[in-house]
């Protein structure tokens, strides 16, 4: 049974006409599929069916160690969204947990953005990212029922596009309770920057930039 409804499929086929560069969804699951691993794989496969610009590769978290390490995946279900084609590029964009509910729109927005190759961030933020010389890891905790969360997820992923040093994860808080506990997540979206700094809510770009500057100062 298909997860995407007919009307939604048709709508997406239309939206994906705008895709330029090929996009690859690198999905990680395992043989005994974890909770929501199966659904996450199905979402990836069904979305990839809707455009010849989108492909999907499914890997086993236990067996395919080399690939797991290459993409630095530490939990499943996971999706890395990378540019495919002649000039493949991994921007460090990751989804951990199922991109359902409001996060499905984050997934689609990311596919469009990676294909476009343009983050859409301000010149000031781009300049900051371009000068970055140390790793920055953003983890955006979300729930699928949170309408404010995609804004925070998309902005983190936009940042990942702008620097080799930035990686950005969506983390579905309910699926990874141990992480939610570790980072004391009791409200979403919550963005954790480099383990040390955190931010509540979907903040405007200048405020996030300020937090990032604080975190790497």
């Amino acid at each position: 049974m298909s997860l995407l409804q007919e009307a939604d499929r048709n709508h997406l086929i239309n939206e994906f006409q705008a895709l330029t560069e090929p996009v690859k969804l690198v999905m990680f699951t395992q043989e005994m599929e974890c909770q929501y691993c199966r659904e996450t794989r199905m979402i990836s496969e069904e979305v990839a069916e809707l455009s010849d610009k989108i492909s999907v590769e499914v890997y086993d978290f236990v067996r395919d160690q080399e690939i797991v390490e290459h993409y630095n995946i530490d939990k499943i279900p996971a999706i890395a969204i990378v540019r495919g084609g002649q000039k493949p590029k991994d921007y460090g964009i990751r989804f951990y947990g199922i991109p359902s509910g409001y996060e499905f729109s984050s997934l689609i927005e990311n596919i469009m953005m990676v294909s476009r190759g343009e983050s859409g961030l301000s010149a000031e933020t781009k300049a900051w990212a371009a000068n970055l010389q140390e790793p920055v890891h953003l983890q955006v905790f979300v729930t699928p029922t949170c309408p404010y969360c995609p804004q925070a997820v998309i902005m983190a992923h936009q940042l990942a596009m702008e620097s080799e040093f930035i990686t950005a994860d969506m983390v579905e808080a309910i699926e990874f309770p141990q992480l939610s506990n570790k980072y004391q997540v009791h409200g979403v979206p919550r963005t954790v920057i480099n383990e040390s700094t955190h931010m509540e809510g979907a903040a405007p770009e200048p405020i996030l930039l300020g937090k990032l500057q604080e975190a790497v100062a």
Partner: peptide, 16 residues
């Protein structure tokens, strides 16, 4: 887990 897996919710967010 209790959240709704209904993808329709997310889809409607795509707009356009």
């Amino acid at each position: 887990m209790s959240f709704d897996l209904n993808l329709g919710l997310g889809m409607s967010n795509l707009g356009g």
